[in-house]
Design a protein around this nucleic acid. Structure first.
Length: 762
DNA sequence: GCGCAGCCCATTTTT
DNA sequence: TGGGCTGCGC
């Protein structure tokens, strides 16, 4: 390769760090100049190529550590990258000060130029919860009905605009109707005004303010453009418009930008990610080199083939074909089951049998579309005594008690932090009820002062009653005392003092609920976390930006998580339950996002399958209890999209009638489509199921009953010859019906087989 | 300020 | 079905 000479070490030959890379990975490392798009399929050694690339830039002296900009989405990814580069280059890795998440780098830049956008450094960084509270205040202040218009709703709308890089003056006027009858834009403006008063920035601002600074101060932009000789972006398919604009500005001058991503794994569209960014990279950066990493080191041929076959149904993608030189391995297993309970039971059995064969529990994962699906598995695992761990859920720093503790510390750092003041002034109760707080708030607004300042003023006036005044005085003096103490106490001692003196720890000690113990533990964790920092300010900065969970590694437990949470992970054995229409693809997603959303759901399925190294087991249930009622379900269309030759159907004989022996003509899983609601949604059926559940792990009763139910068409909702209407195909006449699948001769679209729930009588 | 009954709602989530 | 929130009564 021509590039090799360029990368040669002073001692001749290719440097050691290039060894073991395949040609494409090597190309991704060596193509240092100009725009490069690396399309890295799942399991193709992306991180390795990426970290080697950075190491290479440093080794060859093309850049100093501080001249490299490397952006990721999550702290975890940033940490991992840093570790792996460190393994190659050693201590120099510490100089990579511009390796981090979009937000932490945005914050770093903003801190240096905060005054341009009307902030003083250090400013407070608000998280989602603070945002919603602030938004709520804005709604109240505007005199709107807060019941009708939630703070969260406004925060969501504002976030969506910020994702698109829109400041209030740039929001298209017609979008004001998205919220509060046309007042949305002025509320957005109010919200930004409040942020400025609070000397705070929300997550979106960290980038938006950067854009403003770059836009209004070309000299500053030029300074960063010069500094960042080489730019690297991970998970490019997840970037939103604001991030895209930010990158484009910074890359404009040197054009040494390398974006790495996989359009097939773009699953955050609902959060503002634009797959478009990756799809049009070559247009944005003419002359871009595109390198495809397609050799997969993770999965068996069948797993890859199944995933590839599925994703091929998507239209908007930059086609990649994963391949492997691995051979053999089991087929992807697809199993139809009677209901969700049975699904959980069978997966539990599978896990136990894998375990019996000597596989560790932590080699197995159950990946679901939505967290409500987890309950069935948790219950089953508890019954079996299988240890499992749920990934996701409320993060450490999102927990009530942790946020409260942090609010106390924030108030000590800056007594003007109104959000913190508001949060803990009366927690634990100090007789500062709603009335008093409103008085404080009102005065603060009138004077454009902080709540703490307003409180001091109120103590000098006659506006409050004696009791309230006394309570307020105690609180103010307490905070003042902590602030004085903070000058000579270390962060740890200070935190302990504040939590004790405030009565906050006692507040939970006196709480008899089951939660109290873990809350107290979490408070101890906060103290522990604080002790690792030199100053309180350093800790608070960390909290805002690097607020991830301390995931204690618990060996020997099955993983249970959402598909979203599983991105980037891999497991020898993966279970993918709940592949039913309405669940996966999610009905809500389809309703709200149409065809584009369906493609995103399909990518999610692709992500799920490609997590598996050796064994991938998909399942779907004919019946599922949702929101307390039984519902029949159709096998997901994704099941039908799996290539037949890579799939093995493992439904038990009898349970699915004709599908047991093979694939019925029109759909392989049609027999799972049970339609006679009345038959199983009655007490007798439920009793039978309950009895079966108690009796033995393999319940003959379910099998017996199911055989009777599942065979035959049952009562179709539409008679042959009936006139019907379909959203997409229009009017037509029913020509055949089997189960929930109805064949309709549409007036303008010809014959189609559709699911009856999409039809209305016409 | 607390506890309880009734009511409403119900993806995916990082920073 | 069940969790979270609200409004009411003490």
């Amino acid at each position: 390769m021509a590039g090799l000479a360029e990368a040669a070490s002073p001692f001749g030959g290719a440097p050691a760090y290039l060894e073991g890379l395949n040609d494409e990975q090597r190309a991704a490392v060596l193509a240092t100049e100009g725009p490069v798009l690396v399309l890295a399929g799942a399991g193709t050694g992306k991180t390795r190529a990426l970290t080697t690339r950075l190491a290479h830039l440093l080794f060859t002296g093309k850049a100093q550590p501080y001249q490299l900009l490397a952006v990721t989405f999550t702290n975890k990814a940033a940490r991992e990258m840093k570790e792996r580069i460190g393994a190659i280059i050693g201590e120099r890795v510490e100089g990579l000060q511009w390796l981090g998440t979009f937000h932490s780098i945005g914050a770093q830049i903003l801190r240096r130029h905060a005054e341009i956008v009307g902030l003083k450094s250090p400013f407070t960084i608000l998280d989602a919860d603070d945002q919603a509270r602030l938004a709520k205040q804005v709604i109240e202040a505007a005199g709107l009905d807060e019941k009708r218009w939630s703070g969260r709703g406004l925060a969501y709308a504002i976030d969506a605009w910020k994702n698109r890089g829109l400041t209030p003056d740039k929001v298209p006027a017609n979008e004001g109707w998205k919220f509060a009858d046309g007042k949305a834009i002025s509320l957005y403006r109010d919200y930004q005004e409040r942020l400025r008063t609070l000397n705070a920035a929300d997550f979106g601002d960290l980038l938006i303010h950067n854009l403003t600074i770059f836009g209004t101060h070309p000299d500053i932009l030029a300074q960063y453009q010069d500094r960042f000789r080489y730019m690297l972006v991970d998970e490019y398919q997840d970037t939103n418009v604001a991030q895209y604009l930010w990158l484009r500005l910074l890359a404009q001058k040197r054009r040494n930008i390398c974006c790495v991503g996989d359009d097939d794994q773009s699953i955050y569209g609902w959060r503002g990610a634009e797959v478009e960014n990756i799809l049009r990279f070559e247009k944005d950066f003419p002359g871009a080199k595109v390198i495809r990493l397609e050799r997969n080191y993770r999965s068996t041929p069948s797993i890859l083939a199944a995933a590839s076959g599925l994703i091929a149904a998507n239209k908007s993608r930059l086609c990649k074909t994963l391949w492997t030189d691995q051979e053999g391995g089991e087929l992807v297993k697809v199993r139809g089951v009677w209901d969700g309970e049975e699904e959980a039971r069978l997966i539990g059995e599978d896990i136990e049998s894998e375990q019996a064969k000597g596989r560790s529990l932590s080699d197995m994962a159950v990946l679901v579309r939505a967290s409500f699906q987890m309950r069935a598995f948790e219950e089953r695992f508890n019954t079996l005594g299988l240890s499992y761990r749920v990934v996701g859920g409320p993060r450490f720093y999102e927990r009530e008690e942790v946020r409260d503790a942090v609010a106390y510390l924030r108030l000590v750092r800056s007594s003007d932090d109104d959000l913190a003041f508001d949060r803990i002034a009366n927690k634990p109760a100090r007789k500062l009820g709603g009335q008093t707080m409103q008085t404080i708030n009102a005065l603060a607004r009138r004077r454009g002062a902080s709540m703490m300042a307003a409180s001091r003023a109120l103590l000098e006036s006659e506006e409050l009653g004696a009791a309230a005044k006394g309570a307020l005085r105690k609180f103010v003096e307490m905070v003042d005392r902590w602030t004085r103490e903070s000058e000579h106490l270390g962060p740890r001692d200070l935190t302990e003092l504040v939590l004790e003196e405030s009565g906050y720890t006692d507040y939970w000690r006196n709480n008899k609920s089951a939660k109290a113990d873990s809350k107290l533990d979490n408070l101890k964790e906060v103290v522990q976390a604080v002790s690792e920092f030199e100053t309180l300010a350093a800790y608070l900065d960390h909290v805002a930006l690097v607020a991830d969970r301390n995931e204690a590694d618990e060996a020997g437990a099955v993983w249970l998580m959402t598909l979203h949470a599983a991105k980037g992970l891999e497991f020898p054995v993966v279970f993918l339950p709940g592949w039913e229409e309405g669940v996966f693809p999610s009905q809500r997603s389809l309703d709200e996002g149409g065809a584009a959303a369906l493609e995103e759901e399909r990518r999610l399925a692709y992500v799920g399958i490609t997590r598996a190294r050796e064994s991938c087991r998909i399942s779907f249930a004919a019946n599922r209890q949702m929101y307390g009622r039984w519902q029949t379900a159709l096998a997901s269309r994704f099941v039908d999209e799996l290539p037949e030759r890579d799939v093995e159907v493992v439904s038990r004989p009898g349970l699915y009638g004709k599908s047991a022996a093979g694939f019925p003509s029109h759909s392989r899983f049609d027999a799972a489509r049970v339609d006679d609601d009345a038959y199983y949604d009655n007490p007798g059926w439920k009793r039978a199921r309950a009895a079966a559940g108690r009796a033995s792990p393999s319940p003959p009763m379910i099998e017996g009953s199911a055989r009777e139910v599942s065979v035959g068409a049952g009562a179709a909702k539409f008679a042959i010859g009936a006139r019907v209407f379909h959203q997409k195909f229009g009017y037509g006449r029913v020509v055949a019906a089997e189960g929930q699948k109805v064949t309709v001769h549409f007036d303008h679209s010809g014959d189609k087989k559709v699911v009856d729930s999409f039809l209305a009588s016409a």
